[in-house]
Nucleic acid binder design. Structure first.
Lengths: 342, 342
DNA sequence: TTGTAAGCGTTATCAG
DNA sequence: CTGATAACGCTTACAA
C-alpha cells in the first residue's frame, strides 16, 4: 500500500535522533546551529535530516521557546496599496526564513485599541510587529511592545522613535520639493488640500508646503487651504471649493493621490484644462496616479525599501543597526503640473 | 514592588485549576465547552477565568491538537484591491474567534508551486486556506489540501469545485449584461480587450462577450479583439491598436478596470471624447473606476460577501452548507458608456 | 461528572 | 561535546 519510510506521518526529532543514533538534544543542537558540536556528528545528523525531509514543528518550538516565529503587521488600512506593498516587501524578506506573516487590522478609533493590540501580542507571542501609520504614531503601542518584549518597528512620515524602531519617510522635505516644482513652473497662488487633523503625515506635508511658500516669499493664504480626509470625495469637495473661490489658485497640492484625483474631477466638472488652467500635484504615487489623465505629478516614497528595512530590523538584532531609518522620497514628474497659462 | 496576583506572568491552565480547586482537565472542559460538565463547576471556573483574564495559550493548544487556529490566504496577487478586500472580509469573520489570518503569496509560475504550498500547509498545520484566483484554478492545490486534511475554499470566476469548496462569481453572465448594456445603447461594433490566456476569468469574460454578441446577432470580429495582461500598459497598447484599426469600434469592453483605464488613456491620446466617440466598460469596480474621468461603467462583484462566505465555510463545517457558492455581480453604470455619436 | 496519567514535539538544565 | 530529565501548556485516553 505504501512504500518507503513512515508513510504518512512526518518525522519528528525523535525519529531523527534514533536514526542518527544520538539524543534528541543533539538533533536540537544541529537544528539550532549550536557552536559546540562535533563536526562529524553535525554532518551525520544533517544527512539524516536531509534524507528524511524532516522539518521541526513550529508549534512545539513556539511552546518550548515561549515565542512564536511570527511577524505581525498591524494596521488601520488607510491605503490599500500601501498595506499590500508593505506586505510584499516584508514577505520578500521573510521568505526563506522560518518566519510567517500574520496580518492584523485594528480600529484606531476604538478606545480599546491598546488593549486589543495587547491581547493580540500576548496571545500570539509574536516575534515582532510592524506598526503602519497612522496607528504607528501612537506612543502607547510602542511602550506596550517594549513592555511585552515584542520587537517592533514603526513606520511613519517623520522620526517618531529611535532608529532601530523606525522606518520613516521624510514627507516634509518631499512636499517642499513638490511645491518648489510648482513655484519653479511659475505658480504664485497655490492651493492646498491637507490630510485630516491628528495625522502626523498630514501635519508634515502641510509643514513642508508652508515652508516652501515661505522660502519663496509667497503668502500662505488660509482661504485656499482646505482640510480633507485623504479620501477621493474630500478631494472632490475641496477642489470644488477652491475653484469656486474668488481668486482661485493656479495650482493645487493635494496631500495624497486619492484627493488629487478628486481635485482633478472638480477641474473637469468646470471644464478646466489640466495643467493649462490648473496644475495638480499629489502624494504617494499609488497606482491611480499614472493612470489618470493627465498622469499625475506626485511624490513616490520607497515602500519596498522601507518594508525591507523594517523586516530586517524586526528579524535580526545585529542587522538592524545597519539598516537606514530615514528614507528619501522622490518627485515623479508627469503631466498634471505645468506653467500657469495666465 | 508589585501588587496583586502573579505580577507579570500570564496565568496558565494550572493556575486556574488551582484557584478553582479543580483539575486542569476540568478547566480544559470549560474552555472547550464540553457538554458533560456540572453547571456549577462551569460557572465557578468561568468566574476565575474572567477574573484572572486567563486566555489559553494557542501554541500549546496547537501542539496538543496537532492543528493550528490559523486561516491561510494563499494568492498570487493579481490585484491588490481584491486581495486586500478579501483580507478585510475574512478578518471581519475571524475577529472575535480564536482564528488568525496568515498571508501567503506564492509564485504561480514556479514549477514548485504545489510543493511550496504543501510545505507551507504541513509546517503551519493550517485549519483552512482560501485560494485566490488565478492559483485557485489549479486542481492540484485542491487535491493537496484534501490529502493534508486542510479545509479549503477556492475563489474563482466559475464553479470549479463543489459548493462547500467554492465561492464563485458568475463572470460570464456579468459580462453578458455589460455588453448588452452597450448593445442597448446602440453600439454595433464593440471591441474586446481580453485577459491573458490561461486565466479562467479571462476565458469566462470572453465567453460572456461572445455570447452577448451572438444573442444580438452581431458579428464576432477577431480584428477588434486584443489579448491583454490585465495590466494598464496592455490596455493602453490594446486601445491604441483598436483605435488605429481600419474600422475602429464605437465601444470597447476591457476585461478589467486597469486595462479599461489604459484604453481610456489611448482614447485621450487621440483626442477622442468618451463616451461620445468611444464608450468604455471595465470589470471589477476597483477604486480607480469611480475616480477616472469620466467615471467608468463597470462590473462589481461582491468581494465582501464572497470573502465572508469563504471564511464561514472555512471555519465551520455546519454553517458551510448554508453559505452560497455562487455570487451575482452587478453592472455599475457610470458615465464612460453612452450612445454612439455616429 | 470529574480526575489521573501520558503525550504532543521541542528546548533548557545540568550532569557526565 | 553529549545525553538524561524535566519543563512548555494543553488535550486525549482511561479510570474513578
Amino acid at each position: 500500500m505504501d512504500d518507503d519510510s513512515n508513510n504518512n506521518a512526518k518525522p519528528t526529532i525523535n525519529d531523527i535522533a534514533r536514526l542518527a543514533g544520538v539524543s534528541k538534544k543533539t538533533v536540537s543542537r544541529v537544528i539550532n546551529r549550536s557552536p559546540l558540536l562535533n563536526e562529524d556528528t553535525r554532518r551525520r545528523v544533517d544527512e539524516i535530516i536531509r534524507a528524511t525531509g524532516y522539518v521541526p514543528n513550529p508549534q512545539a518550538r513556539a511552546l518550548a521557546l515561549r515565542r512564536n516565529f511570527l511577524i505581525g503587521l498591524v494596521h488601520d488600512n488607510p491605503n490599500a496599496q500601501m498595506v499590500l506593498g508593505m506586505q510584499q516587501a516584508l514577505l520578500a524578506v521573510l521568505r526563506g526564513t522560518e518566519f510567517e506573516l500574520i496580518v492584523r487590522p485594528v480600529d484606531r478609533g476604538s478606545t480599546s485599541l491598546v488593549a486589543d493590540v495587547r491581547a493580540f501580542l500576548e496571545r500570539q507571542r509574536l516575534h515582532g510587529v510592524l506598526l503602519l501609520p497612522p496607528i504607528s504614531e501612537n506612543d502607547g503601542l510602542a511602550t506596550l511592545c517594549e513592555q511585552l518584549g515584542c520587537r517592533y518597528v514603526r513606520m511613519g512620515s517623520a522620526m517618531l522613535d529611535t532608529p532601530e524602531h523606525m522606518v520613516a519617510s521624510n514627507d516634509r522635505e518631499a512636499v517642499r520639493q513638490a511645491v518648489n516644482h510648482l513655484i519653479g513652473l511659475g505658480h504664485r497662488r497655490i492651493g492646498l488640500v491637507t490630510g485630516p487633523q491628528g495625522f502626523r503625515s498630514a501635519f508634515e506635508r502641510r509643514s513642508g508646503f508652508a515652508e516652501a511658500l515661505a522660502a519663496a516669499g509667497l503668502a500662505f493664504d488660509p482661504r485656499i487651504i482646505v482640510e480633507g480626509t485623504y479620501r477621493f470625495e474630500s478631494g472632490l469637495a475641496a477642489g470644488r471649493q477652491l475653484l469656486a473661490s474668488e481668486e482661485p489658485p493656479t495650482a493645487i497640492f493635494a496631500s495624497n493621490d486619492e484627493m488629487a484625483a478628486g481635485v482633478l474631477h472638480a477641474a473637469r466638472e468646470r471644464g478646466l484644462d489640466v495643467p493649462g488652467d490648473l496644475s495638480i500635484v499629489g502624494f504617494d504615487d499609488t497606482a491611480i496616479a499614472a493612470h489618470l489623465w493627465p498622469p499625475l505629478t506626485t511624490v513616490r516614497w520607497p515602500i519596498q525599501a522601507m518594508g525591507k528595512a523594517a523586516a530586517i530590523k524586526l528579524l535580526d538584532e545585529d542587522d538592524a543597526e545597519a539598516q537606514p531609518a530615514l528614507f528619501l522620497s522622490e518627485l515623479i514628474i508627469r503631466a498634471s503640473a505645468g506653467p500657469p497659462r495666465r
